[in-house]
């Protein structure tokens, strides 16, 4: 009979308080409700341990964003503005606090992993983070949750070489910008080609800058690309790059909007391929990090497809072989 390793699920009903202004906005609270409902009622339910996130401190956010940016973001939220930077980035009064709670989930996960309470962590958070740059909100993102978690892991626990793998349909320009010159953080992203897809970055020649050259790998896929190209890219390009880098820790920017039913990208992945991605990640973790992986939710905008893909990914990640 199939059995699974334990997964710590970090999430909070407070994440629903980030109000994006009504049903027309793709980044909806119902995304998280659907994920939680599906996981609670599905085959992984017995293997889940639910954990409340601890909010990130201001100091830990300042490791990836600048002071001026924080002041502008705080002012926009608390003064009742409807958006921050671009009309896409809808905010409400609570967004300011919830953003700290979203960034803190990854850090809470790091503490769980480092205290050896658990090896697999999934942080189901919103707002998402991978488009947010040091001084720029973009694509529904305000704090870069993944980048802040990476810096926390390095600073709090002295870990050095950290792999970030981002399989959201959109390029994580923010993660790339923050670690562009850093040879200790390898950023690997697979996404829809930047000509046809937001945010218009992530060309295959973007490979890092200065000392960080060679520590960014972008794998753009043509619009319409299905499972075959993902699996091929993981085996031909991504796994060899992970092996060369030999990470001490693995953080996954887990976006599920490449799903064929998700209308926020032109990619055409199946639910099942997320299980294969999960298994590939588990194999890297077995090889390099004693099975430890921290995944943080990014995109995925059709609740049914999102929740099914999350469950399949976690199943692939946690399955006992």
């Amino acid at each position: 009979m199939t059995s699974f390793h334990t997964i710590h699920l970090i999430t909070s009903p407070d994440y629903l308080l980030h109000d994006t202004g009504g049903p027309d906005h793709p980044e909806q609270p119902s995304r998280l409700t659907a994920i939680n409902k599906r996981l609670e009622n599905g085959p992984l339910s017995k293997n889940l341990i639910k954990v409340d996130p601890v909010p990130a401190t201001r100091e830990s956010i300042l490791l990836v964003h600048n002071e001026d940016y924080l002041l502008r973001f705080e002012d926009a939220c608390l003064s009742g503005r409807e958006y921050f930077g671009h009309t896409d980035n809808r905010i409400c009064y609570d967004t300011w606090q919830i953003a700290f709670l979203a960034a803190g989930a990854g850090m809470t996960g790091v503490d769980i992993i480092e205290s050896e309470e658990g090896r697999l962590v999934f942080a189901a958070v919103r707002p998402p983070g991978h488009h947010a740059e040091q001084g720029l909100p973009l694509g529904f993102c305000f704090f870069n949750n993944v980048a802040a978690t990476v810096r926390y892991w390095q600073n709090r626990y002295g870990r050095k070489r950290i792999l970030v793998f981002d399989f959201d349909a959109h390029h994580g320009n923010g993660i790339q910008e923050i670690f562009d010159e850093d040879p200790d953080v390898m950023y690997i992203s697979i996404h829809e080609h930047p000509t046809f897809s937001f945010p218009g970055t992530g060309w295959d020649y973007e490979a890092g800058i200065g000392a960080g050259e060679g520590f960014t790998l972008n794998v753009p896929l043509p619009p319409g690309a299905g499972d075959e190209l993902v699996i091929q890219a993981i085996s031909d390009q991504i796994t060899p790059a992970v092996n060369r880098f030999s990470p001490e820790c693995i953080v996954i920017a887990a976006g599920f909007d490449a799903h064929g039913q998700d209308d926020m990208s032109g990619l055409d992945w199946s639910t099942l391929v997320y299980g294969k991605i999960g298994t590939a990640v588990a194999n890297w973790a077995d090889r390099f990090t004693q099975g430890r992986v921290l995944s943080i939710l990014e995109g995925g905008y059709v609740p049914d497809a999102l929740s099914a893909s999350v469950e399949t990914y976690l199943g692939g990640l946690a399955i006992k072989v």
Binding site: H86, L136, L138, G139, N173, P194, T195, F196, S197, F198, P199, G200, T201
Partner: peptide
């Protein structure tokens, strides 16, 4: 070209 936050349709 390369304008962050945009794409072609």
């Amino acid at each position: 070209l390369g304008e962050k936050g945009s794409f072609l349709i």
